[in-house]
Simulated scan of single mutants.
Amino acid sequence: MAHDAPRMTTSPTGLPLAAALNGVAPLLHLGVIRAQGEEAAKFLHGQLTNDFSLLGLSEARLAGFCSAKGRLLASFIGFKLAHDDILLVCSADLLPATLKRLSMFLLRAKAKLSDASAGFQLWGLAGDAVPAALPAAPWSKLDADGGQMVRLYPGAGVDRAMWVAPVDAPAPGGERLADAQWRWLEVMSGVATLSQPVVEAFVPQMLNLESVGGVNFKKGCYPGQEVVARSQFRGTLKRRAYVVQGDAAMTTGQEIFHVNDPSQPCGTVVEAAPHPEAGWSAIVSMQTSAAGGGRLHLAAADGPGLSLLPLPYPLLADI
């Protein structure tokens, strides 16, 4: 399938869309797990897909938490407040189950885990609200305004960052972005946040996690590690994440169909948001063969049509 150019590049004011999407948005759909103790980093290193033992204070990590079958139970943005104090930001609807499951593996580790969501505020910063002092590389981190600021992948060409601070810190200044606007920028970044409707639906590569810095193949074992490594190094990956757009509303967990095989779905909506002007955009995980040509449809073989957009980053296998 030919990659269609993104539509609707201007805002209702006539400004380029990227220029209109500047500001801050509270990230109320996210929560925070806190890991504290002298073995907190070592414990997380043995549970998640990324390296937390060597995590520095000026960087963050994207990481997944998998079942023994290599299926994602949660995805995180993690960083250290101190060498023995780590925050994991994840979808709030997954936090209780994730915290309970992680706690099962603590055993005698010198670490404790807690739901710290009530103690922190999380904000998304877009466009000119992202300070120039924050390094441009995704997952870089900066102490800023009494909190921690993490550089995210851009969405639709718009710079993005996440700011995490104690709940009593002053909120960041700037124009308010609507939640839907922030969610759309996240979708357009191509980096999905796993949520409840799609728990255990994907191995990390089905969300391109290894291509956006979320999997370290050189670290030691973690739950599902053998499955994740085998998916990467033995044979071709048959499912990947893509960005699509369409006129109809989309929701997480909806199925995607391809015109050449109308009897069964070829993919799943992972995250979706309305376009700031019209239509919807979504990250979908689907068969790579379905991205090669032919029409895509939402929810049914004769459902609303979808257009495939270019991925905003290269896939690891293509680098």
Rank of each mutant, 00 (worst) to 15 (best):
A2F: 10
A2R: 13
H3T: 15
D4S: 11
M8H: 15
M8K: 08
T9R: 10
P16A: 12
A18D: 09
A19E: 15
L21G: 05
V24E: 02
P26K: 06
L27N: 05
L28E: 13
H29N: 06
L30Y: 11
G31H: 05
V32H: 08
V32M: 12
I33C: 04
Q36R: 14
G37L: 04
E38G: 00
A41M: 05
L44P: 09
L48N: 04
F52V: 02
S53N: 14
A63D: 06
G64K: 03
K69Y: 01
G70R: 05
L72H: 10
L72P: 06
S75F: 00
A82H: 05
D85W: 07
L88P: 04
L88T: 05
V89I: 15
C90A: 14
S91D: 11
D93A: 00
T98H: 02
K100P: 00
K100Q: 15
L102V: 09
L106V: 00
L106I: 00
L113Y: 00
G119N: 15
G119L: 03
F120V: 10
F120Y: 15
F120W: 15
F120E: 06
W123Q: 03
G124P: 10
D128P: 01
A132N: 07
A133Y: 03
A133L: 08
L142F: 05
A144E: 12
G147E: 07
G147F: 06
Q148K: 05
R151V: 11
G155I: 03
V158W: 08
D159Y: 04
D159P: 14
R160H: 10
M162C: 04
W163R: 04
A169I: 12
A169H: 14
A171C: 11
G174D: 12
G174V: 11
D179F: 05
D179H: 04
A180Y: 02
L185A: 08
E186I: 10
S195F: 08
E200A: 13
E200Y: 02
F202K: 09
F202P: 01
V203H: 03
V203M: 13
L207Y: 08
N208Y: 15
L209K: 06
S211D: 09
Y222D: 05
Y222N: 00
Y222H: 01
P223R: 13
Q225D: 07
E226N: 13
E226R: 01
V228M: 13
F233W: 14
G235S: 10
G235F: 03
T236N: 06
T236K: 15
V243N: 01
V244S: 05
V244Y: 13
A248C: 07
A249M: 07
T251P: 02
G253C: 07
I256D: 03
H258V: 00
V259P: 00
G267H: 10
T268W: 09
T268H: 00
V270I: 14
P276F: 10
E277C: 11
W280C: 11
I283Q: 08
V284M: 03
M286W: 01
Q287G: 05
G294R: 04
G294N: 09
L296I: 01
L298T: 11
L298G: 04
A301M: 02
G303R: 03
P304K: 02
P312S: 01
P314D: 14
L316I: 09
L316N: 09
A317Q: 12
I319N: 12
